[in-house]
Design a protein around this nucleic acid. Sequence first.
DNA 1: TTTCATACTTACATTAATGTATGTACTTAC
DNA 2: GTAAGTACATACATTAATGTAAGTATGAAA
Lengths: 124, 124
Amino acid sequence: MKEKATLSEKLMRGDLMEPDCPSRGVLMHVTSRWGVLVLIALETGTHRFSELRRGIGGVSERMLAQTLQQLEGDGFVRRVAYQVVPPHVEYSLTPMGLEVAEKVRSLADWIELNIERIVAREPA
Amino acid sequence: MKEKATLSEKLMRGDLMEPDCPSRGVLMHVTSRWGVLVLIALETGTHRFSELRRGIGGVSERMLAQTLQQLEGDGFVRRVAYQVVPPHVEYSLTPMGLEVAEKVRSLADWIELNIERIVAREPA
DNA sequence: TTTCATACTTACATTAATGTATGTACTTAC
DNA sequence: GTAAGTACATACATTAATGTAAGTATGAAA
């Protein structure tokens, strides 16, 4: 499926066809059900937790929190908390996050634009 | 999160921020654990079931079959079976499938290229 | 004084995804 | 005759993902 290389070379470089490649984990965070939508939402700018919660239809607080933490852990999302009450936390993309978000949105845009074409030819 | 529009307008056009938009289903097929890898593998050309099975590290027969069927159902994959024994089936991308695959690979490539940068700054 | 909003966490329940093992029908190679 | 390869389907078991509900601390508004 790709040029031959040693296992360690593949893993260092990132080879998704290898079962143990760390790329798979990152890919799963980014392409997870809510990961995609969070990245797209944050591409429009900084947002608070509750804004994201309201903007992303159907996401629960639990899932939103978890997704944001994963993306923060991968270095795609920056979290800034103000020590006030009630709590005020702002989320935004890091430069690296912006790069992935662009790729993700490109895919999402294609699907949104072509959804009628896809659904139309769907069997039952 | 996006311009205001009626619900039906959103759904027709495809609005991923809407919980009931069919785009979400397609997106999930495409970004599913094995969907991504199948699309990337097929971008290199036509492949038999067993070739994909061997090429995509860690995928089970069950999951590969299921993933291929989903992608076929969405119109991204074409399946051609020859009536011979032992069975011979070839999978390839449709023109539409090629379009999505390009987007998906673009994302995957970015992750593979940047995996070291990502992992390096990972906390624990 | 009760309610509301915020940004979570935690426990528990449920659903979805995935894996494992087995079977099939036939042919070719051993 | 026995094993292997092919492209699956199916039943069952397990794991992962997700949802629901409740709790927390505090201040401001009603």
